Simulated assay, not measured.
Amino acid sequence: MDNPSIITQVSKEEAKTPLREKVSACYQYEEEMGGEGGGGGGEGMVGKRGRGGKDEGWNQILFLPDWMIPSCPPQPVNNADFIIPVEIDGTMHQVYVLKRPHVDVFLKRMGELFECVLFTASLSKYADPVADLLDKRGAFRSRLFRESCVFHQGNYVKDLSRLGRDLDQLIIIDNSPASYVFHPHNAVPIASWFDDMSDTELLDLIPFFERLSMEENIFTLLQEHHCS
């Protein structure tokens, strides 16, 4: 079974390219194309924002894509956090899953600050059961899978304009700039993760998102983050 074909569109080899270089190419593409996606709003895949009770303080919607679905080593490992049975072409396979360090703390805090949506290029047959195991506190208000992406120039793109919300309230974290090529100004880039258990990137990002959750204009702070 080719794990990346059902799970992610970023391989270890591709992850060697500096993230800043890939993000710069994404901005250049947007300028050349004049933006592929629309302006947002209207009815869409996520639906109207819930209000009342816990939801009352939310100003933005945060999309947690493929990096949130943990790494899957090509071979069985002894320290897997989850083992997911997945049926591919009539055959059951065991997918061994490693959680990125601090993902539980990060997801809990993001669920307190934002309306969170899992948006992944992974197939639902894999990503849905992983999300069930990962999201014990119910941070994900919606889940969108590969079927909700736009296949564009060989990549699965998360077109934020199709989601039914104003773009100035949408934030996407992604390890693949190709995934947000239509809306790079809404993105918080994050490095791909495979097996480095000393990684602290999720923990380091929490203060930034705490600031971002208080902003009326998300683009100002996002631009500062892109330039830092």
Rank of each mutant, 00 (worst) to 15 (best):
L221R: 10
F82S: 04
G34T: 06
Y156R: 01
L123Q: 14
C26S: 15
Y180N: 01
R20N: 13
I173H: 04
P177D: 04
E215N: 00
K125L: 14
P76F: 01
S161Q: 01
G42S: 12
E31C: 01
D81T: 13
E201N: 11
F106I: 00
F194C: 03
P184E: 00
P184Q: 02
A139H: 07
A187E: 01
K99G: 04
E210N: 03
L160G: 03
K48H: 11
I83Y: 05
H93E: 13
I84A: 02
E112L: 02
Q223M: 11
K125S: 11
S198K: 15
L118G: 08
P65A: 15
I218W: 02
D168N: 14
F209C: 07
F63L: 13
E210F: 05
L221N: 02
P73T: 03
F182E: 02
Q9C: 02
D132V: 11
Q28I: 05
V117R: 00
I173F: 02
D135E: 03
S122Q: 10
P207F: 00
H183N: 15
R20H: 10
L133R: 13
W58D: 10
E216F: 09
G38Y: 05
Q75A: 14
E21A: 15
S71Y: 15
N155T: 12
S198F: 11
L62A: 11
F208S: 01
T200C: 09
E13D: 15
L134R: 04
M1W: 13
L19A: 02
I171Q: 00
L64N: 03
S142V: 07
F151N: 06
S228Y: 13
G42Y: 08
A187T: 00
E13N: 12
P129N: 07
V181R: 12
N175A: 12
E201R: 15
D104E: 15
G39Y: 09
V77S: 02
Q223W: 09
L123V: 12
M45D: 08
F119K: 01
V157S: 05
E56G: 11
V150F: 07
C26V: 02
G47Y: 07
F145Y: 15
D104S: 14
L221F: 05
L160C: 07
L163W: 10
V77H: 01
V103R: 02
D81C: 09
N78K: 12
D195P: 06
G39P: 07
P70W: 02
L123P: 02
S5T: 13
G154M: 00
D128C: 09
A80L: 09
